[in-house]
């Protein structure tokens, strides 16, 4: 999915297409984002957690 780094590499679980539209940041559970596949037209959920944090003030010497 182009344009949004958070969704880089997301593919449709049915047809593996990357031509996707993000439908909702919160899917059928809190842990999922809902997408629609432009190729096979199904709607699917993608498991979110990739460890990204919001903007965080930098602390010298903290291991990231």
């Amino acid at each position: 999915m182009s344009g949004d780094r958070d969704f880089a590499g997301v593919r449709c679980p049915h047809c593996a297409s990357e031509a996707l539209t993000m439908v909702s940041l919160f899917g059928s559970s809190v842990s999922e984002v809902m997408f629609r596949c432009g190729q096979c037209r199904t709607v699917f959920n993608w498991v979110k957690w990739r460890g990204t944090l919001p903007p965080t003030p930098t602390v010298p010497d903290r291991p990231s």
């Binding site: 699917f44 959920n45 993608w46 498991v47 957690w49 460890g51």
Partner: peptide, 21 residues
């Protein structure tokens, strides 16, 4: 917790249920 902790068989089952992980 991360998706890497889910075993391959479970991931495959999730995909058939429309959950990409």
């Amino acid at each position: 917790w991360s998706r890497d902790m889910v075993d391959a068989e479970a991931k495959a089952l999730m995909r058939t249920s429309g959950i990409q992980i």
